[in-house]
Amino acid sequence: MVRTLLSDEVWQKIKDIVPGKEGDRGRTAADNRWFVEAVLWIGRTGSPWRDLPVEFGRWHTVYMRFARWRRDGVWQRVAHSVAGEGEIEHILIDSTIVRAHQHSAGALKKGGPQAIGRSRGGLSTKLHLAIDAIGRPLRLILTEGQAADISCATELIEGLRAQAVIADKGYDANAFVQSIRAAGAKAVIPPRSNRISKRLYSRALYRTRNLVERFFNRIKHFRRVSTRYDKRADSYLVFASLACAFGPLVQL
């Protein structure tokens, strides 16, 4: 018997936003919970789809349904619902490089860029993340591994209201700091060593930045996130989003 991850409490949060529930057009999907478990199993173990345990059904049928939900934006709604909403006190941002497995290369060019680049160590992709002070994921962006952290900084916090934005010195850029202040927030970012005029920042608040680093450690327990096997960027982003939403809630 495979180990499951979904608690009754978490399932209650998402059961009414997935397709196939009672009242939807088409055939009712009585196995929605078991299907979500199957996708979480793939994400947690990093296994190929063909190795999906038979208890979950035919692997190809499960994959096609996964792809259909990906196309329709269902997984993003699921992740958002699990994470929940609330007032944001502080925003913490950072990025992490993920090694891309050789199986992730070779996506069709007509699909556009697939967020795989070259950095130290070979093929890689990078996850840019914003969380709040209680460890709730706010925004996730995928780029090539060689992309600079600052390249996604503004997009990570755009439209989010908070008292402070906390980041390491890789985000120390005048334009970004000014955009934070223009939004009415404090920029808790240590200045680079080559700055002539050193900017003051709250060292006490900066010490909380380890929350985002611990968050990355947590979601990388999902092996399909810690190593990228998916050729398509949107498929990998689905697993990363699910890990962000479910990772803090489950025992891995």
Rank of each mutant, 00 (worst) to 15 (best):
R214P: 08
R209F: 03
S202Y: 11
R223Y: 05
R223L: 15
V212S: 05
H221K: 12
Y206C: 03
Y206S: 02
T227W: 02
N217T: 12
D230S: 04
Y206D: 05
L205R: 06
R209P: 00
I219Y: 09
S226A: 13
A204D: 11
T227G: 03
R228K: 12
T227E: 04
V212I: 14
R203D: 13
R203Q: 15
Y229D: 02
D230Q: 04
F216M: 07
R207P: 01
R209S: 04
T227C: 08
S226H: 06
F222V: 09
V212T: 02
K220D: 14
S202P: 09
K231V: 14
S202F: 10
T227N: 05
I219W: 07
R223D: 08
R207N: 12
R203H: 15
F222N: 02
H221L: 12
S202H: 06
K220F: 13
Y206I: 02
R209C: 01
V212F: 02
L205M: 15
F216A: 07
R224C: 10
H221Q: 15
R223V: 11
F215S: 00
A204K: 11
A204N: 06
F216S: 02
R218W: 04
V225T: 11
R228C: 12
F222S: 04
E213N: 06
N217Q: 14
F216V: 05
F222Q: 04
R224W: 01
V225G: 00
R203W: 14
I219L: 11
R214H: 11
S226M: 07
V212H: 01
S202N: 14
K220R: 15
L205F: 10
R218H: 03
D230L: 03
R218V: 09
R214F: 07
L211A: 08
L211F: 04
R207K: 15
R214E: 05
R203A: 12
K220E: 15
H221N: 08
Y229R: 04
V212Q: 05
R228T: 06
F222C: 08
K231P: 15
Y229K: 07
R209V: 00
T227V: 15
F215R: 00
R214W: 02
R224E: 10
E213Y: 10
S226D: 04
R224D: 08
R224V: 07
K231F: 12
Y206N: 02
S226W: 01
S202R: 11
V212E: 01
D230M: 04
D230E: 13
R214V: 04
F216P: 03
R223T: 06
T227A: 10
Y206K: 03
I219N: 03
F216D: 02
D230I: 01
H221A: 13
R218K: 15
Y229I: 04
N210P: 00
R223N: 10
R228H: 12
L211S: 08
S202C: 13
R224A: 02
L211Q: 05
R218Q: 11
R207W: 10
N210Y: 13
E213F: 05
R228S: 07
R203S: 13
Y206V: 03
N210Q: 14
R203Y: 15
V212M: 06
N210S: 13
F215A: 00
V225L: 05
E213P: 08
V225P: 00
N217D: 13
D230W: 00
L205Y: 05
K220N: 14
I219K: 06
I219T: 12
Y229C: 06
H221D: 12
